[in-house]
Design a protein around this nucleic acid. Structure first.
Length: 325
DNA sequence: AACTATCTCAACCGCCGCGAT
DNA sequence: TATCGCGGCGGTTGAGATAGT
């Protein structure tokens, strides 16, 4: 839906449009939109539910651009929307907000999600705050669809130590490898679609949503990658401990602060193999192109009872496929 | 081409915490 | 102190898209 959506929204001067929205007109005024929404709502009861229309989006964006966000219930009323405040808030935060990133989850972002989830669990909002432009909903969806799928295939619980072992010793090193490959290829191979900047007359709106420093994502994920080094305990350690020392500036999702980034040397690139956390096995490049079962065998992990899936399904290639789509 | 299975993700729901009264 | 309304969060659902047969 993305191409149609973005084309449409460009015409509307908006960020994006719902999948079910009818084509709109850039000449449509707010008053016309209000009338359209009011007319529609009369047919459907007091409060509308379901997919948002282009008119509703326009009303919401227009209102927030002039008055800022917050106090969602009154905002919904004042904007002429027949929606609950919750619905308006959700629509804004997950879809219409100017800085919402769209497109595939990059390896850097995947690495961060895996790492942060291992530390914080299902604290989606907290995780999302560390990945500028990504919403808690998007991260939650990613986890449920991609990560949990692999857990099911491994016939283990997604929160089990066993699965965490696989993630840390197989998946994450593979992502690191991918990051290195991308860096070596000259970067920019996959730049998630960033919602185009829109004029926000509200000071609150403009100050809150500008200056998303995506370099932080790469830097942070590299930090995670670098700290994925072996230790002597034999237990995977949290690679985030280093990161947390600078959390204040580093994790600030909207801040421009990059000055306080810690000085961990980044030496990801290079010809050698990857060291896996808590493990003395070193993954060589060719091992990363195999199937899940090959990878698991190579890591000396305890025997996994594979699910009823074709072995190819276990390939972590889907991590990469997202890059080329 | 038609049908089915699977995946994706926008949206809703219920719960909880917090501040105002 | 009790109650109420609101905002925020995590879990879940279902429609549409896509892949497979």
């Amino acid at each position: 839906m993305d191409m149609d959506k973005e084309f449409y929204m460009a015409g509307m001067g908006m960020v994006a449009a719902p999948a079910m929205s009818p084509a709109g007109s850039s000449a449509m005024t707010t008053e016309v939109a209000i009338a359209a929404v009011a007319t529609a709502s009369e047919d459907e009861g007091d409060l509308r539910r379901g997919p948002w229309t282009a008119q509703e989006d326009m009303l919401l964006v227009d209102y927030i651009s002039r008055h800022g966000e917050g106090r969602w219930n009154s905002l919904a009323r004042c904007a002429g929307l027949r929606r609950t405040g919750k619905s308006c808030r959700l629509r804004w935060l997950n879809y219409l907000r100017p800085d919402v990133r769209r497109g595939n989850i990059t390896p850097e972002e995947q690495l961060l999600i895996l790492e942060l989830h291992s530390r914080w669990g299902n604290r989606w909002s907290k995780i999302a705050q560390c990945i500028p432009g990504r919403t808690d909903n998007e991260i939650k969806n990613y986890w449920r669809t991609r990560v949990q799928k692999h857990a099911r295939q491994l016939r283990c619980d997604v929160n089990s130590d066993r699965f965490r072992d696989v993630v840390r010793r197989v998946w994450m090193p593979r992502l690191v490898e991918r990051m290195q490959a991308d860096a070596a290829a000259g970067a920019g191979a996959d730049v998630p679609v960033m919602a185009p900047a829109r004029t926000m007359s509200s000071p609150a709106a403009t100050s809150q949503y500008h200056n998303v420093d995506h370099a932080n994502i790469s830097e942070l994920s590299r930090t995670v990658a670098v700290t994925m080094s072996p230790d002597t305990s034999g237990t995977p350690r949290s690679s985030l401990s280093t990161v947390e020392t600078s959390q204040g500036a580093y994790f600030s999702p909207w801040g421009a602060a990059t000055a306080n980034v810690h000085s961990t040397p980044v030496e990801c690139a290079g010809g050698g193999g990857l060291a896996m956390a808590g493990h003395d096995h070193v993954i060589q490049g060719d091992e990363l192109s195999g199937s899940w079962s090959d990878l698991l065998a190579a890591t000396n992990l305890p025997e996994f009872e594979l699910g009823d899936f074709d072995d190819n399904l276990w390939s972590l290639e889907d991590v990469y496929l997202q890059q080329s789509c």
